[in-house]
Design a protein around this nucleic acid. Structure first.
Lengths: 344, 344
DNA sequence: GAAATAAATGAGAACGATCTCACTTCGGTG
DNA sequence: CACCGAAGTGAGATCGTTCTCATTTATTTC
């Protein structure tokens, strides 16, 4: 490793003390014009730039935030990383990325590691599902006042800010759309154990109830992962057991490909034979002309990042129940058929 | 920010010197059994873990690598990040991610920033195109002996290791497949300015030549970005100007959606009306049953990461022309039609 | 039991930047 | 010319860890 140039080298070359050189670099205090020019010349000549590590140790700030999430290969996740990194860059922050692969132990390990690294803040898309409990010895990691913002998923009862879509409302609206078109037996494909999905199911149920339909749990087909192959299998099973289904409502991304493949295999045409409504996967859905609930991931990332900055600067304090909702848009396309019987 | 626990606190509680406590933590030197136990007890009681920043300053190693790339939202990029992060994690390294958005100035800024942060090494998917020149004042950034591995794209004449697919061979094979099926006018959609794409075009040309066809530059339609909308437009233009085209060969990911949309608009059926062969976009292509050149991004990331470790440890030295080729697989599906005339 | 060796320990320097504090220099005022 | 406040400067401490080096303590050998 090449010996790097320190502020001492600059000071020596400029013929001043380290303190004076530091004043020029940090642009504070009083420095005579003569000294300033000589230091600036030295900086340029040596091509000096401060060692960020030393600054971190001294200033107790690393100018780094961490994004901990399931898997960057997931399109929600990478869109989030993109948005966060863009926002962070503006303020001179770098972004460390950690994949939990939806494993809670790995998530905990990452949080610990990031704290040892004295990262200034953490944006967390937690792997915790609704029925998992934080063990007491790890509770501190989630509850401490270390700056941390939750995204997309919340852990109930934690004093933590959460940024997520208006899942209940958007799902209510999406379901209502299907109901209006006459669909009564709407199958769901989702990874049901996450808080986000629970919310979307709540919106679905609410809409059903308004139409005098009570929710049938059997129509909710769960996958254990965001895996097209599993989605395909689950779809097949759902259609076999419930031939009355006229529409499929997909609550996660990365699943619709599997559903489409299964429909193709069964020679079922989207829309004409079975209606489809999907969360996310915008690129794919555009291609297949599917009505889609499009989350504003860009905004979620931006808001999460800025909220984190506020926490870091002490301008705000995390509090339980603080949830910022970013509205999702429903893009109406051509995958939901009107099956109302015209009777007169 | 909460006052953190230092090794001094541990030493004090255990009733030993900082040096002895350090020996226990670092597990080196000789420590009496008695002292060891007391220090370990203190560590546990205080829940001590070392400050990584201080370690970095002292050891001149940050246990961090950076991945600098165009855009994590791109599927090649995020698969690369995933693979690198997984590999890095095994060795206790964290990964900082930087998006250049294919802007060279931003790339340079990132490299500088990462070096100031004393990141141990850099994996770079450079935004440099074939006709861009590195300015002299920035040359040092690319040519220094700072551990750095190029991925997917190379800058000619640099003393840098490159890890990439066997572009020429795979493209030769893919093109040969089309030629064997009787296609003579094969249109290309690609962002032609990157070294990778140039290589793929070389493979294409080589295959054509073997069939006694000389390459027609007009059949190569360039997009300026990995953008489906642009791909769509370019495809339209290409088809208008060259109705003789019987097959389209797409050399980048993120473009096929645009091509598919344009074909759909023109009521051209994939395979029956026009053959299609695509690099990457595996998920989408599976759905559309398209013959695909699948790069082994997982391996590329892994190899790049391990090569970087070797450079970091001084076990290897970067040298010009060192290019490790990871074979890409051609997955034959059902998007290329046999148009040979049976004449007898 | 003395000498020689090995084990155990702590003081202090180093990494590089920042910042307090004390001291010097300067210009202005009475 | 004496005095004062402000501007300019540098010595040295600090952040938390690691590690050398010198010293003390324990163990072995003759």
């Amino acid at each position: 490793m090449k010996q790097s140039i320190t502020i001492n080298d600059v000071a020596k070359l400029a013929g001043v003390s380290r303190a004076t050189a530091g004043r020029v670099v940090g642009n504070y205090g009083n420095v005579s014009e003569k000294s300033r020019l000589r230091v600036q010349a030295a900086i340029k000549e040596l091509n000096y730039s401060p060692n960020t590590i030393a600054q971190s140790l001294r200033n107790n700030t690393t100018k780094t935030i961490a994004v901990i999430l399931g898997n960057v290969k997931n399109n929600y996740c990478n869109a989030l990383v993109y948005a966060v990194e863009k926002e962070a860059q503006k303020e001179g922050y770098s972004v460390i990325i950690c994949n939990t692969r939806e494993n809670i132990q790995r998530e905990i390990m990452h949080i610990q590691n990031m704290r040892n690294r004295h990262v200034d803040g953490i944006i967390l898309m937690s792997a915790f599902t609704t029925d998992e409990q934080i063990r007491d010895e790890e509770k501190e990691l989630y509850e401490s006042n270390y700056p941390m913002v939750f995204v997309d998923r919340k852990i109930h009862g934690l004093k933590r800010d959460v940024i997520m879509s208006n899942n209940v409302e958007a799902s209510y609206e999406a379901t209502s759309h299907l109901l209006k078109l006459g669909h009564k037996n709407i199958g769901i494909i989702a990874t049901a154990d996450y808080s986000t999905i629970r919310e979307r199911i709540r919106g679905y149920e609410k809409a059903l109830n308004e139409y005098g339909i009570s929710m049938n749990e059997e129509l909710i087909a769960e996958t254990t992962a965001l895996d097209p192959d599993e989605a395909r299998m689950v779809t097949g099973k759902l259609l076999d057991e419930h031939p009355e289904i006229t529409a499929i409502y997909i609550l996660n991304n990365s699943l619709s490909a599997g559903v489409l493949l299964e429909l193709k295999k069964r020679n079922l045409r989207v829309r004409d034979d079975i209606s489809l409504l999907v969360w996310d996967d915008e690129m794919l859905n555009q291609l297949f002309d599917l009505t889609t609930v499009v989350q504003s991931i860009d905004n979620i990332g931006k808001v999460a990042c800025n909220r984190l900055f506020e926490l870091m600067q002490g301008k705000a304090e995390a509090r339980e129940g603080y949830t910022e909702r970013i509205p999702a848009q429903i893009v109406y396309r051509n995958s939901c058929k009107n099956i109302n019987v015209i009777d007169n």
